[in-house]
Each structure stands twice: as structure tokens, then as C-alpha cells.
Design a protein around this nucleic acid. Structure first.
Lengths: 218, 218
DNA sequence: CAATTGATCAATAAATCTATTGACAACTAG
DNA sequence: CTAGTTGTCAATAGATTTATTGATCAATTG
């Protein structure tokens, strides 16, 4: 009549997923994979971890079925297992940002100068594009842009931006987006553009937030 | 220019939340608190853990700000910190149930005999109540019912049910619900009622799923 | 087929986590 | 104030997790 035997086998399964989320390293990997699938080596380079270490963390994520793999010749490509995993990650992040004062404090401490307060909301963005009033630039690395991007966006990786300023319109407003709420690329791009006399603002959130809300993408 | 210093301090904060979700014991506590706030002793009794052990797990949850406390005389009442925490827990559970085949296998293994396939969806429930076509019973412990329950539900704790059969209608259909998808109380109640000749089905999901969807409650 | 590239595996030491035990602190009631 | 109840804290031993190192494996290239 007690349900203990059931619970004793059920909760460890849930905890397997929880355990996968219990390391800052793994969360960083998950966050990168939320942008686009990647090879192990690329993940290691971006996170400044050893390949072996990344590989082991990926095994933990795979054991919890949060990521999947696909061989591509001599390389192995990892990707999120599905949109529900993205939801879970954003849900965890949202709890942390709402509950832990340290998160807000940290974003304040690392805030980029000269960005301004204004942000374009995701709800407003579509109308602005349709009206042709703005130019939307994706300042993430091209690999991530190629994997998927907001409709109408132009790829303008952060490191290429300084050399491509003359291709940008002075009259139309420029909206920049990147990897999401905690990514600084868009802030830095906006700050640079404003210094150069452009009318630039950042989008609230980035690619993962857009996808998680089920909005159209290219 | 590298964002590493920022990331190196940001992700450990997210991982603090992840770590809180990394233990089957803590997830069980969280699941109970999703039903209603509770005292430490009650949690220990229900989970068959020592009070000291429960207390320590609760400190971890509190450190991640997933739960909050309130003193009540000599006792301490713990509760979920907010609806976002409930969302996170259900999101994790949903990933586990979609991704881990073992979960489906386990629920099959512990399935209650004589429940039947039919379930009432949460979307359909309101209309059925309004039409007066069904009786809705909440088979959770009374403490949880008192903390909040579905509109129109009658408290009928699982252990009292056998002695209160004559208070139930033979003509109207009876819909039972409990702590949620993985709680067996409703299944057992339905099986009992059907053996006794009642027309009974269970609700899809339970109290937490209802609340998480923002539906009206009493 | 040998050499190279990319990723995993195995072993290990350091760090962290867990359950248990018993002591202690906060509060209530008499 | 004292005794009793409830919960937390501190210490500890056993288990688990982590990063590192070097070996191994799989696929491609010469």
C-alpha cells in the first residue's frame, strides 16, 4: 500500500536529469548547444576546457538524454535533444535570475557602457521589420547564424562589425541581438554603433528565447 | 574582450539551482512542497528520512532560494519560493518523462489494475463541473486539500474513501485527482470505486499541473 | 597500410556530497 | 525557570564527482 518502492525508483530517474544540470561547466555547454549544434573541439575551445573534460561532461548530458550525437566523418556533432530541453534550461535560468540577487548584481557589474536603457521587445520586433523601419543584425558567430536566425536578420559577427560599419544604414534604426539575455555581444555592438553615430538598440533576449517561444525562424 | 570572467561567475550561480535539483531526495521534498507547505517533521515522516537529513536537504534548497521558511511556534514551515519554481520542477519532470524510457517503463510496472484507460483532461473538466454531470473528489491528505484544491472538489482522502462509499453518487460519474501524474492515489481510488460499481475516472495530472497552468483554484 | 585527426576511455588524486550521530538552539507550556 | 518539542548544526566516514594525464579507438588521408 505504500508507494515507497515506486518513488524509490522514480525519483532517481528525475535526479539523473537534475544531476546533469548541477555543474557550471555542463550548463555552459548546454547554453552553447542552445545556439547551434557543435563539435566537441569547438565546445572545448569556446569554454576553455580540455577536450577530454568536455567529452566527459557531454557523456553526463547524454546519459540524461539532454543532448544527442551524430558522427560526421572524424568529428562528432552534439546537439540539444529537443525543445523541451531548451525550455528546461531557460526555466532554470529564469528561476536563478529571479531568486538569486547575485545574478542581477553580476550583470550590473559587467554591464557594457554606452548601451542605453532602451530595448526592443520580441513582441514588437516583427511589426518593426514588416514596416521596414529597422535593420536587424545578428552579431553571433556565423556558424550559429547559419544554423538558424531571426527572420530578416543579417549576419554581422561581433568581430567583423568594426570593419563593416559603412554597410550599415545611418538613417534606419539598427536592432542587434545575440545569444540571449546574458550574452554581451549585442551590448558591445550597440555601444560601438552608438559611438559611431548610429541609432542602435538591442533586442530583449536572443536566439534561444525567440525559439523557445515558438516564433518563426529561418 | 573575452567574456570569460563574466561567465566564470555567472554559471556557478545557475549551477547552484541545478545542484539543488541533483538529488532524488531533494526532488521528492520539492514535489511534496508543490502540494502544500509543510513542517520538517511531516516531510521526514512522508519521505521516510531522518529529520536531520531532511533539514540538511532543505538547507540546500533554501540556499538555491527554491524554498522559503516561516517559523510557527516551535515548528518551521517550508514552502516553494514561487510558481516559477513549480514550473522548473514540472519542466524537469517533463524532460525526464519524454527522454528517459525508464520512466514510462516504471509507470507501466507499477500501474494500478482496474483503472481503465479513460482520463478526463484538465481542459474538459471545467465544463463537466459546470454541467453538474460529475462529482470531483480530491483524494490527497486533508492538509493538502486545505492548502488549495480544484474548484468544486470535495475532500475524500484515500484512506477514508473505503468508509465513505455511501456518500458517493451511483448515477453521476466520479472524477478523482491527487498529487499529479506520478501519484498513485487517484488510480487506486478509481480502481476501488469501479470494483464497487461506481462510474469513476481519473483526471489527467493533479493539483500541481493545474496550478502551473494558472487555472482557477480554491 | 601507416599516419593523422578527433573523440572517448581508464586511472587517479583532490574536492565535494551524503547520511548518521549526537550536541545544541529556539520556542512553548506548565 | 524547567522540561519537552522541533529543528539546526558540527563532525565524520563513505561514496561520488571532478580535472588531468596518457592510452586507445574510429574515421579519414596520404
Amino acid at each position: 500500500m505504500s508507494h515507497r518502492p515506486f518513488k524509490q525508483r522514480l525519483y532517481p530517474l528525475f535526479a539523473r536529469v537534475g544531476h546533469a544540470l548541477a555543474s557550471d561547466r555542463r550548463l555552459e555547454l548546454l547554453d552553447l548547444l542552445a545556439q547551434s549544434p557543435r563539435h566537441v573541439e569547438a565546445l572545448a575551445a569556446e569554454t576553455e576546457m580540455s577536450v577530454a573534460s568536455v567529452s566527459q561532461h557531454l557523456q553526463v548530458l547524454r546519459n540524461a538524454h539532454l543532448v544527442e550525437t551524430e558522427r560526421e566523418g572524424t568529428k562528432v556533432r552534439y546537439r540539444l535533444a529537443g525543445d523541451d530541453v531548451l525550455q528546461l534550461w531557460l526555466s532554470l535560468r529564469s528561476v536563478a535570475e529571479r531568486r538569486l540577487a547575485e545574478v542581477a548584481q553580476l550583470t550590473r557589474e559587467f554591464a557594457v557602457e554606452g548601451v542605453g536603457e532602451a530595448e526592443v521587445s520580441r513582441d514588437d520586433l516583427q511589426a518593426l521589420i514588416d514596416q521596414g523601419k529597422i535593420m536587424l543584425i545578428d552579431v553571433r558567430p556565423r556558424l550559429e547564424f547559419d544554423n538558424g536566425h531571426l527572420p530578416g536578420a543579417v549576419s554581422m559577427p561581433a568581430d567583423e562589425l568594426p570593419g563593416r560599419l559603412e554597410t550599415l544604414p545611418k538613417r534606419r534604426r539598427i536592432v542587434a541581438y545575440c545569444r540571449g539575455t546574458y550574452c554581451l555581444f549585442a551590448d558591445e555592438a550597440v555601444a560601438l554603433l552608438r559611438r559611431e553615430g548610429f541609432d542602435a538598440v538591442r533586442l530583449d533576449g536572443g536566439w534561444p528565447e525567440w525559439v523557445a517561444e515558438g516564433r518563426a525562424a529561418e
